[in-house]
Computed example of a mutant assay.
Amino acid sequence: MLKKTLFLLFITFSNLAFAQNVDSITLVNAKWHKQRVAPKTKLITYHFDQKNLFLANQNISYVEVKNKGNSPVFEISASPKELKTTPTFGKENAAFAAINGTFFDVKNGGSVDFVKVNGQVINSTKLEKNNSRARHQKAALVIENGKLALKKWDNTSNWEENLTEKNVMLSGPLLIFNQLDEALDTSAFNRLRHPRSAIGIKPNGKIILLTVDGRQENSAGVSLFELTKVMRWLGCTSAINLDGGGSTTLWVSKAPENGIVNYPSDNKKWDHEGARKVANVILLKKKQ
Rank of each mutant, 00 (worst) to 15 (best):
L2F: 15
L6K: 11
L6Y: 15
F10T: 00
F10I: 00
I11W: 04
F13N: 08
A17E: 11
A19T: 00
N21I: 05
V22Y: 09
D23S: 05
S24R: 11
I25N: 09
T26Q: 12
T26D: 07
V28N: 08
V28A: 13
N29V: 05
A30E: 02
W32Y: 12
K34N: 05
Q35H: 09
K40Q: 11
K40M: 12
K40C: 12
K40Y: 11
T41Q: 03
L43Q: 14
T45G: 11
T45C: 14
H47R: 10
F48K: 06
D49F: 15
Q50Y: 14
N52I: 07
F54C: 03
N59T: 04
I60P: 00
I60E: 02
Y62Q: 05
Y62P: 09
V65T: 00
K66H: 06
K66A: 09
G69N: 03
V73H: 00
I76N: 00
A78Y: 05
S79M: 09
K81Q: 06
E82C: 06
T85K: 15
T88D: 14
E92T: 01
A94S: 09
A94E: 06
A95N: 08
N100K: 02
N100L: 01
F104W: 12
F104M: 05
F104S: 02
V106P: 00
G110C: 10
S111V: 07
D113T: 13
F114Q: 13
V115D: 08
V117A: 15
I122Q: 09
N123S: 15
S124G: 03
T125H: 05
R135E: 15
H136V: 05
H136A: 08
H136N: 14
L141M: 11
V142I: 09
G146C: 02
A149Y: 08
A149C: 04
A149E: 09
K151H: 03
D154M: 11
S157E: 13
N158R: 09
E160P: 00
T164I: 07
E165T: 06
N167T: 05
M169P: 03
L170M: 08
P173S: 00
L175Y: 00
I176M: 08
N178H: 03
L180C: 00
A183V: 04
F189C: 02
L192Y: 15
P195Q: 11
A198P: 14
G200I: 01
K202C: 08
N204R: 01
N204H: 10
G205M: 07
K206E: 14
I208W: 02
L209K: 03
L210F: 12
R215P: 03
A220I: 08
G221L: 06
V222R: 07
S223L: 15
E226S: 06
K229C: 13
M231W: 04
W233R: 10
C236A: 15
A239E: 08
L242D: 04
G246N: 10
S247H: 01
T248C: 07
L250E: 02
L250W: 01
A255Q: 13
N258P: 02
G259Y: 14
I260C: 04
I260H: 05
I260M: 03
V261A: 10
D266Y: 07
N267W: 11
K268H: 15
H272N: 12
H272T: 07
E273G: 11
G274Y: 14
A275G: 06
A275N: 01
K277M: 13
I282N: 02
Q288E: 08
